[in-house]
Write a protein that binds this DNA or RNA. Sequence first.
DNA 1: GCCAACGTTGGC
DNA 2: GCCAACGTTGGC
Length: 141
Amino acid sequence: MAYWLFKSEPSTWSWEMQKKKGDAGQEWDGVRNYQARNNMRAMKIGDLGFFYHSQENKDVVGIVEVCGLAHQDSTTDDGRWECVDVRAVRDVPNPPTLEDIKKNPKLAEMVLVKNSRLSVQPVTDAEWKEICRMGGVDPVP
DNA sequence: GCCAACGTTGGC
DNA sequence: GCCAACGTTGGC
């Protein structure tokens, strides 16, 4: 089981919108970056990810589960771009902010800190547990 | 709103 | 294959 982090501007695609999709989930479309795409290609059904709001609150607001393997991104005909499907599984009651994350020495190596522009990122087991602890959510939903 | 960092494109 | 120019992202 691998862990990930999905970044989205709430004005484009928010956690609220994701939750409205329910268990059916939604494709994580619009990614036009090879690294992010490769991360999605590596995902397996049941992998978990943080849902992070960029630009506005800059916090980890939810947990999603991968419910569909990488497939053609329906928003483009360009065959280079693929995406997975994700569904919301948990709210994070105490959303850790980017500031909180930067202040935590255990999270200093997070991709979110090191390469803030990558929109789909891997998260290590230790980082997953630590952010879940900070957020007040069970690491195994 | 600004700007640094990064990724992509295209000319050579 | 290199690299300058350009566009985009996202923190501040």
